[in-house]
Write a protein that binds this DNA or RNA. Structure first.
Lengths: 116, 116
DNA sequence: ACCGTACTACGACGGCTATCGTACGAGTCG
DNA sequence: CGACTCGTACGATAGCCGTCGTAGTACGGT
């Protein structure tokens, strides 16, 4: 039987035109979230939340993924029990050409500096 | 006559290697501050604080300029009663190549979209 | 039916932030 | 000196944010 209730198995995303630069920058101004995005970009694939080894609790992880989704940086889809995450590269590149790549490069450079 | 003492009129800035990507992104995630930076980039010059027409009080303006300075985005120097602000383009470009331009372009694009 | 895994919802807590007004200091010009 | 401009400091306030733990739901396998 199909559940009558509107089970929130579908996650709300901003459309492309609803994505705001401020929100994207705010989302990426947290190191944990920037790390998620970097790993996602490196993987060039869709990853489940649990594939990330983050220095925070599970609740906090959920929170960070939601911020990334609501700001339009990632797309999330349920696949069984897992929630798969993908970078919204097309939308971001269309809206802010070159920005994502510059951010990823910047994060990588800073990571290299910190490792010294 | 040249002042002998390092007067308290000198403002603390982060050195180039102290500039953090997170801090820069956080600084730019506020619309008022992004606007300041955009105007500064357009002017390609050093501007006094009062040259900006911002939708906030004077206290708040001071606050925003301090955030920009402490994050390493702008440089501030007293010149008489005025405080002159300059974009730290060299440092930012050296640390995060292409990032500043991508951000400025993104802000301009979004501004154009909003104007419709 | 049961259990384990994956993620969420909720409430709490401490800290930061954007905002303001008022009062003040520093410099310039008459 | 006095008046004026530019910017600061301080205190207050309201709201958001990152963090957590606990309790709970959804799904898949045994």
């Amino acid at each position: 039987m199909t559940t009558a209730l509107p089970s929130p198995r579908v996650l709300p995303h901003p459309t492309r035109d609803e994505i705001r630069l401020e929100s994207v920058l705010h989302a990426l101004s947290d190191p944990v979230r920037m790390r998620i995005v970097s790993e996602l970009a490196d993987a060039e694939a869709v990853l489940s939340c649990s594939r990330f080894d983050l220095p925070v609790s599970k609740s906090t992880t959920t929170h960070h993924f939601r911020v990334l989704r609501e700001s339009g940086v990632v797309q999330q889809v349920y696949e069984g029990t897992a929630k798969m995450n993908g970078l919204r590269r097309d939308d971001l590149d269309a809206l802010f050409p070159g920005l994502l790549d510059a951010l990823l490069t910047a994060a990588r450079h800073q990571g290299a500096r910190d490792a010294l």
